[in-house]
């Protein structure tokens, strides 16, 4: 099944590393660690009006976490904090309770095989949680 977990789509996402790098003048930042494995993500977000305008992340983590961070970098710009919260909830639902993904978030399907490995759920969720945390600090400044 790991061949499925490490399908080409995930490897391509991780390799693309959408949104990787430092973001200047962020509105919100976060640093989250996974103490079990040492994964770390530093994430910064900039807002324009009610939407995310840019994301920058520095992710030192496993392939699954880097793929998830890349997907955050790819999908967050142009979306509202509420929509990204929906994404995080949809992802968690799919992983932990086999919930069906909403039409807007079919892109998360790539992580469906990870559901069988609860010890890896945190790897996939970490970047989405980091985005939520960064958005929370941005909201606090407003």
């Amino acid at each position: 099944m790991s061949a499925t977990v490490y399908q080409q789509a995930i490897k391509t996402l991780a390799e693309a590393a959408h949104g990787s790098g430092r973001l200047e003048d962020p509105d919100g930042t976060s640093r989250l660690d996974n103490p079990l494995c040492g994964d770390r993500i530093d994430l910064a977000v900039r807002l324009a009006g009610d939407a995310v305008s840019a994301v920058g992340h520095e992710t030192r983590a496993c392939l699954l976490c880097r793929a998830a961070a890349s997907l955050v970098g790819l999908t967050a710009p142009g979306r509202s904090p509420g929509e990204m919260a929906d994404a995080a909830a949809a992802l968690e639902g799919m992983l932990t309770s086999a919930a069906v993904l909403p039409p807007a978030w079919q892109a998360l399907e790539v992580f469906a095989p990870v559901a069988a490995y609860p010890s890896r759920h945190g790897c996939v969720l970490l970047p989405f949680q980091a985005l939520q945390a960064a958005l929370a600090t941005a909201a606090g400044k407003r």
Binding site: S2, D39, A61, C62, L63, C65, R120, C123
Partner: peptide
Amino acid sequence: GIHPHDVCQVLGE
């Protein structure tokens, strides 16, 4: 270049 959890995952399979 490869994270230990990824190694463990593939070996686990």
